[in-house]
Design a protein around this nucleic acid. Structure first.
Length: 270
DNA sequence: CGTCAGGTAGCCA
DNA sequence: TGGCTACCTGAC
């Protein structure tokens, strides 16, 4: 086991804000899957304790190197944001593996978190390898090209999203996704949107949650609703206009603003 | 037991 | 470009 002292980090909010799906809580520990890793982790005050990964991985994965206080300062543009960032203090964006992130969010279309989780778990179970940490057992996530059997894929119950995942697995390789990092935001987004099953929202999730584009602002139904309420006097507004507004209003860290607003919007009705 | 969902593709004006 | 609608299926 390793320990690490953190600053301005909340493990619970970070893992339970809906950006990542393969998370399980058991006996006070979180079990987090990330491609071929299974991490066992918990937080005690400022300190995190973990198994299954080394310090560089943990630091990078949980964005512990990102200057969150500075970011919060920049996105706290009004009282609503100050409330949301205070409410979920320490929430950080996770740097997921681009391929796992892409598949997860293709699954997310017109779905809900329990079902998305079930699809991602299913794909892991039917295409991944068994992995354990302590007495917890799960499966690794299959790499690009490894989701190559439609009958097995069907067992994950993806519905109409299955064909998109199958096609993506057949046509994409990891280098293709990694190469997006060096592109400008708009260009990287357009490349992602060439993938069937990927349009604005999913592309923005992949850019924000796995490729370090912190300006990406995914507009889903929750964000659509809360943004209209807070900034458009409850008037119906096209999602495109919401993205444009967010870009100008929140700036280069709009993605962080999005995640705090998402939590704020979702949890008040829960 | 219906309704509807963390959207998107395809089609048409 | 902008506005439909069908789409799998299981949570609620």
């Amino acid at each position: 086991m390793a320990k690490l002292k953190t600053d301005c980090f909340n493990l619970e909010y970070t893992l339970e804000c809906g950006q990542i799906f393969r998370v399980n809580k058991q006996d006070g520990w979180y079990y987090v899957n990330a491609m071929d890793k299974l991490i066992k982790i918990r937080q005690n005050g400022d300190t995190i304790e973990y198994f299954g990964a080394n310090k560089p991985f943990i630091t990078n994965f949980f964005s512990l190197d990102v200057p969150l206080k500075k970011i919060i300062k920049e996105i706290n543009r009004d009282d609503n944001m100050k409330l949301a960032t205070k409410e979920y203090e320490g929430l950080r964006l996770i740097r997921q593996h681009p391929w796992e992130c892409l598949v997860s969010f293709i699954f997310s279309a017109a779905s809900n978190i329990p079902r998305i989780k079930s699809c991602v778990d299913g794909v892991s179970k039917y295409f991944g390898k068994k992995i354990t940490v302590g007495d917890f057992e799960s499966y690794t996530f299959p790499g690009c090209g490894e989701i190559n059997d439609t009958q097995k894929l069907e067992k994950a119950r993806p519905g109409f999203r299955g064909k998109y995942v199958y096609e993506a697995s057949a046509s994409i390789n990891e280098n293709h996704l990694e190469s997006l990092r060096s592109m400008p935001y708009e260009e990287a987004k357009n490349v992602l949107k060439e993938i069937k099953g990927v349009a604005d929202k999913v592309a923005d999730c992949v850019l924000l949650f796995s490729l370090d584009f912190m300006e990406a602002f995914p507009v889903d139904t929750w964000i659509n609703r809360i943004m209209q309420e807070l900034y458009f006097e409850n008037n119906p507004v096209p999602k495109k206009e919401i993205r444009t507004f967010a870009d100008e209003y929140f700036g280069r860290y709009a993605g962080y603003a999005q995640q705090y607003l998402f939590m704020h919007a979702r949890n008040r009705t829960k």
